[in-house]
Protein backbone atom coordinates (compact mmCIF):
# COMPACT_ATOMS: atom_id res chain seq x y z
CA UNK A 1 0.00 0.00 0.00
CA UNK A 2 2.77 2.36 1.05
CA UNK A 3 4.70 1.39 -2.04
CA UNK A 4 1.77 2.18 -4.31
CA UNK A 5 1.48 5.59 -2.69
CA UNK A 6 5.21 6.20 -3.20
CA UNK A 7 5.06 5.11 -6.85
CA UNK A 8 2.05 7.30 -7.50
CA UNK A 9 3.84 10.29 -6.03
CA UNK A 10 7.00 9.52 -7.99
CA UNK A 11 5.10 9.20 -11.27
CA UNK A 12 3.36 12.51 -10.66
CA UNK A 13 6.71 14.12 -9.85
CA UNK A 14 8.30 12.74 -13.05
CA UNK A 15 5.32 13.84 -15.11
CA UNK A 16 5.76 17.39 -13.82
CA UNK A 17 9.50 17.25 -14.39
CA UNK A 18 9.32 16.36 -18.09
CA UNK A 19 9.87 19.45 -20.18
CA UNK A 20 6.67 20.28 -21.99
CA UNK A 21 6.90 20.09 -25.75
CA UNK A 22 5.36 22.79 -27.85
CA UNK A 23 2.68 21.40 -30.11
CA UNK A 24 2.45 24.29 -32.56
CA UNK A 25 5.88 24.12 -34.27
CA UNK A 26 5.53 20.39 -34.93
CA UNK A 27 1.90 20.79 -36.00
CA UNK A 28 3.00 23.52 -38.40
CA UNK A 29 5.64 21.25 -39.97
CA UNK A 30 3.14 18.38 -40.18
CA UNK A 31 0.63 20.67 -41.84
CA UNK A 32 2.81 22.06 -44.59
CA UNK A 33 4.67 18.84 -45.40
CA UNK A 34 1.41 16.89 -45.38
CA UNK A 35 -0.16 19.55 -47.58
CA UNK A 36 2.79 19.41 -49.94
CA UNK A 37 2.45 15.63 -50.31
CA UNK A 38 -1.28 16.00 -51.07
CA UNK A 39 -0.55 18.73 -53.62
CA UNK A 40 2.05 16.47 -55.23
CA UNK A 41 -0.59 13.73 -55.41
CA UNK A 42 -3.05 16.09 -57.06
CA UNK A 43 -0.34 17.19 -59.53
CA UNK A 44 0.43 13.58 -60.46
CA UNK A 45 -3.30 12.91 -60.88
CA UNK A 46 -3.80 15.95 -63.13
CA UNK A 47 -0.74 15.13 -65.23
CA UNK A 48 -1.95 11.57 -65.80
CA UNK A 49 -5.32 12.87 -66.97
CA UNK A 50 -3.59 15.48 -69.14
CA UNK A 51 -1.07 13.17 -70.80
CA UNK A 52 -3.25 10.07 -71.07
CA UNK A 53 -6.78 11.33 -71.83
CA UNK A 54 -8.05 7.76 -72.33
CA UNK A 55 -7.47 6.93 -68.62
CA UNK A 56 -10.64 7.15 -66.51
CA UNK A 57 -10.67 9.33 -63.38
CA UNK A 58 -11.03 6.24 -61.19
CA UNK A 59 -7.91 4.61 -62.70
CA UNK A 60 -5.96 7.87 -62.49
CA UNK A 61 -6.50 7.86 -58.70
CA UNK A 62 -5.18 4.32 -58.49
CA UNK A 63 -2.11 5.20 -60.55
CA UNK A 64 -1.48 8.26 -58.37
CA UNK A 65 -1.54 6.11 -55.22
CA UNK A 66 0.81 3.58 -56.80
CA UNK A 67 3.25 6.34 -57.73
CA UNK A 68 3.14 7.85 -54.22
CA UNK A 69 3.66 4.43 -52.63
CA UNK A 70 6.59 3.81 -54.95
CA UNK A 71 8.18 7.19 -54.16
CA UNK A 72 7.86 6.68 -50.39
CA UNK A 73 9.36 3.18 -50.60
CA UNK A 74 12.18 4.47 -52.75
CA UNK A 75 12.94 7.26 -50.28
CA UNK A 76 12.81 4.71 -47.44
CA UNK A 77 15.23 2.48 -49.29
CA UNK A 78 17.78 5.21 -49.85
CA UNK A 79 17.51 6.30 -46.21
CA UNK A 80 15.86 9.69 -46.67
CA UNK A 81 12.29 9.07 -45.54
CA UNK A 82 13.09 8.61 -41.83
CA UNK A 83 14.65 12.08 -41.78
CA UNK A 84 11.62 13.67 -43.45
CA UNK A 85 9.37 11.72 -41.05
CA UNK A 86 11.30 12.85 -37.98
CA UNK A 87 10.82 16.44 -39.15
CA UNK A 88 7.21 16.29 -40.31
CA UNK A 89 5.68 13.65 -38.02
CA UNK A 90 2.01 13.14 -38.86
CA UNK A 91 2.49 15.08 -42.09
CA UNK A 92 4.13 12.05 -43.68
CA UNK A 93 2.31 9.36 -41.67
CA UNK A 94 -1.29 10.25 -42.52
CA UNK A 95 -0.98 10.23 -46.35
CA UNK A 96 -0.40 6.85 -48.02
CA UNK A 97 3.36 7.58 -47.89
CA UNK A 98 3.38 6.68 -44.18
CA UNK A 99 1.75 3.33 -44.89
CA UNK A 100 4.30 2.59 -47.58
CA UNK A 101 7.16 3.51 -45.25
CA UNK A 102 5.75 1.37 -42.44
CA UNK A 103 5.87 -1.68 -44.75
CA UNK A 104 9.17 -0.94 -46.46
CA UNK A 105 11.17 -0.12 -43.33
CA UNK A 106 10.63 -3.42 -41.46
CA UNK A 107 11.14 -5.29 -44.75
CA UNK A 108 14.59 -3.70 -44.98
CA UNK A 109 15.32 -4.21 -41.30
CA UNK A 110 14.47 -7.90 -41.16
CA UNK A 111 15.79 -8.87 -44.59
CA UNK A 112 18.83 -10.44 -42.95
CA UNK A 113 16.65 -12.91 -41.04
CA UNK A 114 15.72 -14.61 -44.32
CA UNK A 115 13.19 -13.91 -47.06
CA UNK A 116 10.23 -15.91 -45.67
CA UNK A 117 10.33 -15.64 -41.88
CA UNK A 118 12.38 -12.46 -41.91
CA UNK A 119 11.22 -10.07 -44.60
CA UNK A 120 7.82 -11.48 -45.58
CA UNK A 121 6.66 -12.25 -42.03
CA UNK A 122 7.90 -9.13 -40.31
CA UNK A 123 6.97 -6.72 -43.08
CA UNK A 124 3.64 -6.14 -41.34
CA UNK A 125 4.74 -5.61 -37.73
CA UNK A 126 3.79 -1.94 -37.92
CA UNK A 127 1.22 -1.84 -40.72
CA UNK A 128 -0.49 -5.05 -39.56
CA UNK A 129 -2.86 -3.37 -37.08
CA UNK A 130 -3.84 -0.84 -39.76
CA UNK A 131 -4.71 -3.60 -42.21
CA UNK A 132 -6.66 -5.54 -39.56
CA UNK A 133 -8.68 -2.54 -38.40
CA UNK A 134 -9.32 -1.54 -42.02
CA UNK A 135 -10.64 -5.00 -42.82
CA UNK A 136 -12.79 -5.17 -39.68
CA UNK A 137 -14.20 -1.71 -40.35
CA UNK A 138 -15.16 -2.64 -43.91
CA UNK A 139 -16.83 -5.82 -42.63
CA UNK A 140 -18.92 -3.80 -40.18
CA UNK A 141 -19.88 -1.32 -42.90
CA UNK A 142 -20.74 -4.25 -45.18
CA UNK A 143 -23.03 -5.73 -42.53
CA UNK A 144 -24.76 -2.40 -42.03
CA UNK A 145 -25.38 -2.12 -45.79
CA UNK A 146 -26.73 -5.67 -45.84
CA UNK A 147 -29.43 -4.90 -43.30
CA UNK A 148 -30.32 -1.40 -44.45
Amino acid sequence: MQEQERNKRYNAYVEAKIAKTHAWPSLFNSFWVGGLICTLGQLINDLILLWFPSVSTQSAWTYTLIILIFLASLLTGIGVFDKIGAFAGTGTIVPITGFSNSIASPALEFKNEGIIFGMCAKMFIIAGPVIVSGTVASMIVGLIYLFL
Binding site: I18, A19, T21, S26, T76, G77, G79, F81, D82, K83, I84, G85, A86, A88, G89, T92, I93, G98, N101, S102, A104, S105, P106, L108, E109, F110, I126
Partner: peptide
Amino acid sequence: ERQFRFPLELGNQRPPT
Protein backbone atom coordinates in the same frame (compact mmCIF):
# COMPACT_ATOMS: atom_id res chain seq x y z
CA GLU B 1 16.64 0.01 -32.01
CA ARG B 2 15.77 -3.21 -33.82
CA GLN B 3 15.30 -5.16 -30.58
CA PHE B 4 13.58 -2.57 -28.41
CA ARG B 5 12.04 0.00 -30.73
CA PHE B 6 11.21 0.49 -34.39
CA PRO B 7 12.93 -0.26 -37.70
CA LEU B 8 15.68 2.23 -38.47
CA GLU B 9 14.09 3.64 -41.62
CA LEU B 10 10.64 4.18 -40.10
CA GLY B 11 9.73 7.87 -40.36
CA ASN B 12 8.63 8.36 -36.75
CA GLN B 13 9.43 11.06 -34.21
CA ARG B 14 11.37 10.17 -31.06
CA PRO B 15 9.67 11.05 -27.77
CA PRO B 16 11.40 14.00 -26.03
CA THR B 17 12.39 11.87 -23.01
